[in-house]
Write a protein that binds this DNA or RNA. Structure first.
Lengths: 219, 219
DNA sequence: CGTGCCCTTGAGTACAATCAACGTTCGTGG
DNA sequence: CCACGAACGTTGATTGTACTCAAGGGCACG
């Protein structure tokens, strides 16, 4: 059913600004392969990433009702994306209430992730922020089968990207990453995360996956 | 139509935890009068407010698809709230696609506000965060006719509440508030905001109301 | 085998936190 | 009506987390 909604599949290269803030949208994008991020930019090069997208995510489904985004979407790696015309989404809302609620659910999930990030940025110190981000991505990747348990999983972000997720500088991320490595909880090297002690990592981050609503996911 | 969805109207006193994290929901709440906030809590009393709700807001519409919230909702003042059973929302999604998209839109608006907060918390210094929050609330209150232009408008938060919105301590909020007052842009006293120079305030905050999508609001 | 991107380290600084005390306002009950 | 207590706001002194600036190293890719 959702497969039917995809009108086209495309490849996009890494570092490509797929959607720019303020653009008028006529279709939505499902990420099929690769990593993307949503971000907002301020003067003087200040940049804040608002979400990391992994395969399976709709990256701009909220654009179906908003029509214009107030943030941008950029590829972190080369990606394969599915194009879903708003017109087909409109038809789904007219004829498939259940599917509509499912789509609505996925945007609400994004919002729940945003709120967790607000909490991190507002109230967690740098080391907990990093730990929490690793927990979140590990959990989400596991849900879609992209993080084999107990092995390193790919996370194609630079330390500067991590800094833009966490409201830090890359210099500080570098130091905190070393702290995490020394603590034995988790390592991040060459765009790969190796979790050494998941329990310790989650405890440090006060990570509770409930906000990701794994029990209500389709498929 | 939305009026019909409300099964009951209730009064709630100030400081009342209306919804607690993890509760199973069977109805949604529209705020008719008063102020509420959504927040998440961490160990050792750390608290982060994730959104301020004003009259007209659905405070937990995302709970319709998520069923369990990962945050709590608390009244800031005494409030009048409308109860909207999920069962009626379900019926709306089955029979009124347009209205469904409208409800979906409002939850996407919440997410857009969350993203702006992520940006503030991650990349704006304290004074800009405060300025931006005042801009946001002024703009939203104006949209629903609760902030007469050019006069003080009520904002029933303590400095500690502001701190919990902005990821600061109340001590620091106090100092930054004085700075803002001295700058001539805005004053906050006795739970009232007086904007002295809206242009300067918005410039300081780099406030662009586009993310609030005023053009797509119903009513 | 350079050139650019990313990571690492060091030294000095600043913004915001903590700790602590005191002031103000307001509601309540004696 | 005044006395008291609680909640909120203000101020000062000190500390610490994270930033800035700066320089150097590793590595991949052309």
């Amino acid at each position: 059913m959702l497969r039917w909604a995809i009108s086209d599949i495309r490849s996009v290269s890494a570092g490509h600004a797929t959607i720019r803030e303020g653009e008028e949208l006529s279709h939505a994008i499902v990420l099929l392969q690769g990593f993307m991020c949503r971000h907002k930019d301020l003067s003087e090069g200040r940049r804040q990433i608002t979400e990391i997208h992994i395969p399976g995510d709709f990256v701009d489904l909220h654009g179906f009702t908003l029509k214009k985004l107030s943030d941008s979407v950029t590829t972190l790696t080369s990606c394969r994306i599915g194009i879903v015309p708003h017109e087909r989404l409109l038809r789904i809302t007219e004829t498939h209430p259940h599917l509509t609620r499912l789509l609505w659910f996925t945007t609400n999930l994004d919002a729940a992730i945003h709120r967790e990030w607000v909490l991190s940025l507002g109230r967690r110190p740098a080391i907990e922020r990093l730990a929490h981000l690793f927990c979140e991505l590990h959990f989400r990747l596991t849900l879609v089968g992209h993080a084999p348990p107990e092995t390193p999983f790919p996370l194609p972000l630079t330390q500067a990207d991590l800094a833009d997720c966490l409201g830090l500088t890359s210099v500080h991320v570098n130091r905190v990453l070393q702290e995490l490595r020394d603590s034995g909880a988790v390592e991040f090297r060459k765009r790969e995360v190796t979790i050494r002690d998941l329990g310790a990592l989650r405890a440090l981050a006060e990570f509770d996956p409930a906000y990701l609503h794994p029990e209500r996911r389709p498929r």
